[in-house]
Computed example of a mutant assay.
Amino acid sequence: MLPNRELAIQELKIAGEKNPGLWTAHSYHVAEVAELIAEACGNLDTEKAFVCGLLHDIGRRTGIA
Rank of each mutant, 00 (worst) to 15 (best):
E32H: 07
K18V: 02
A34L: 02
D57I: 03
A65D: 11
A31H: 05
S27F: 06
R5P: 04
A40D: 13
L12H: 05
E17L: 08
V33G: 04
W23M: 01
E47C: 09
G59F: 14
E39C: 06
A40T: 13
D57M: 08
T46M: 04
I14W: 11
N19D: 05
M1D: 01
S27Y: 05
Y28G: 00
W23E: 02
L22Y: 11
L54G: 08
H26F: 09
H56D: 07
M1S: 06
A40H: 07
Q10C: 01
H29E: 14
E39H: 06
T24P: 00
L55E: 03
E35K: 15
T62C: 01
D45Q: 01
H26K: 02
V51C: 00
E35H: 08
L2V: 11
E11S: 08
G42L: 07
A49P: 03
E17P: 02
E47L: 07
A15M: 07
P3Q: 09
H56A: 10
L54E: 05
M1G: 02
W23L: 02
G16H: 02
I9C: 11
R61W: 12
R60V: 05
A40G: 15
H29I: 12
H26Q: 08
C52R: 09
A65I: 13
L12D: 04
I9Y: 07
H26I: 04
R61T: 10
M1H: 07
N4R: 13
Y28I: 01
I58G: 03
D45G: 06
V51H: 03
V51Q: 01
P3A: 07
P3V: 15
I64Y: 12
T46A: 14
K18A: 13
E32N: 15
V51W: 02
L36T: 12
D45A: 06
E11N: 08
A31Q: 07
Y28T: 03
R60T: 09
K18G: 03
I14A: 14
M1I: 04
R5E: 13
F50C: 05
C41Q: 09
F50Q: 00
A31W: 04
L55D: 00
I14S: 10
K13C: 03
V30Y: 01
G42E: 09
I14R: 14
T46F: 03
L54H: 06
A25I: 06
K18H: 09
G42I: 10
A65T: 14
E35T: 12
R61E: 11
E47M: 09
D57C: 08
A65W: 12
R5H: 08
R61Y: 12
G59I: 08
L36D: 15
T24G: 01
G42D: 11
K13Y: 05
T62Q: 02
I37A: 13
L36A: 15
F50G: 03
P3M: 11
C41T: 07
G16T: 00
L36I: 07
N19K: 04
G63H: 10
A25L: 10
G21M: 03
E32S: 15
I9G: 05
A38T: 12
T24W: 01
Q10A: 14
N4V: 08
G21H: 04
